[in-house]
């Protein structure tokens, strides 16, 4: 069984007129089907308004499909009695770290989730410790969240979700408000969760460089999945991505432009190392 499975999911937002009557519907997710294998690192790309956040909110049952079905770890998210279980198995981290932190002290904030689940006190502390260690924030456990940088706050938010022992974590533009260092810290933490803890990670982002290590990428447009593949397959299609209001990492763009100018390079170069190696090959063959 896949950890997340969506079958023909449709979600429509109601549009209201000035009196609050329903005027019509906007389809945000339009017959989307996807499968996410347990333990993988998935990325979802798409321009503003493409439906990616709406889709993500189905994974921990913030939204429920109007048509079709979403299963998390085999549980139908539309079934009322599954809500609690679904939300524990699929955690979510949002864009703005300041909206997600409630505790006065870092460790209290991280303990909030398991406490609400009725986890015994001793185990709560164990979970808090392991979660903070997993995101590299253990030494800040006694700090006030207010005094942390954006990247550190986001890592505390991730630890808070991790302490609930989810199988999936959905990160919805977790780096949009961060400086370069903060972005690096958060992405490193997300990759660590995936590789070390084995948590399935679903990352939504507008920063193309952040997803070059993903196992699989979905690109959304007009509520549908427009492209699907490995980062290399996706980023090989520079022009198609531009049509979808997206871009490629700077190094991929540079390789693409060099190729257009006649340098024999393969498509979909993703890292600095690859580009240097390929250019060295070109040099040697002359």
């Amino acid at each position: 069984m896949n950890i997340v499975k969506a079958d023909n999911v449709v979600y429509k937002y109601e549009r209201h007129d000035e009196e609050g009557n329903v005027e019509g519907y906007t389809t945000a997710v339009d017959h989307v089907s996807l499968d996410v294998k347990e333990g993988t690192f998935i990325a979802i790309l798409g321009h503003n308004g493409s439906g990616k956040s709406t889709l993500a909110k189905h994974i921990n049952a913030i939204l429920s499909p109007k048509e079709g079905t979403v299963w998390v770890d085999g549980l139908d998210t539309a079934q009322e009695e599954n809500l609690w279980e679904v939300r524990q198995r699929a955690g979510m981290v949002f864009q703005n770290p300041d909206n997600q932190i409630i505790g006065q002290v870092v460790e209290e904030d991280v303990g909030f989730g398991p406490e609400n689940m009725g986890v015994p006190t001793k185990e709560i502390w164990e979970r808090v410790e392991e979660s903070l260690r997993a995101v590299g924030m253990y030494e800040y456990r006694k700090h006030s969240p207010n005094r942390l940088s954006g990247g550190q706050k986001q890592r505390v938010s991730i630890a808070g979700v991790l302490a609930m022992h989810p199988k999936v974590i959905v990160l919805d533009e977790p780096t949009a408000m961060l400086d370069p260092n903060g972005r690096r810290e958060v992405i490193r933490a997300a990759r660590g969760l995936n590789q070390v803890e084995g948590v399935t990670v679903i990352l939504i982002t507008h920063y193309m460089e952040e997803i070059v290590h993903a196992d699989q990428v979905f690109v959304m447009d007009h509520g549908k999945i427009a492209m699907e593949g490995t980062p290399r397959e996706i980023f090989s299609q520079v022009e198609k991505l531009k049509e979808l209001r997206l871009a490629v990492p700077q190094v991929t763009l540079l390789a693409h432009e060099l190729k257009q100018s006649g340098v024999p390079l393969p498509d979909g170069i993703l890292t600095r190392k690859e580009l240097v190696e390929e250019l060295s090959k070109v040099c040697r063959s002359r």
Binding site: P180, G182, R184, V251, R272, L275, V276, L279
Partner: peptide, 20 residues
């Protein structure tokens, strides 16, 4: 100080190191 260069600037440094 917690910042970085554009990715292409790093590429150029890597290339220089590789003898370009």
């Amino acid at each position: 100080v917690g910042l970085a260069c554009p990715q292409v600037t790093y590429v150029m440094h890597d290339l220089k190191e590789a003898g370009f």
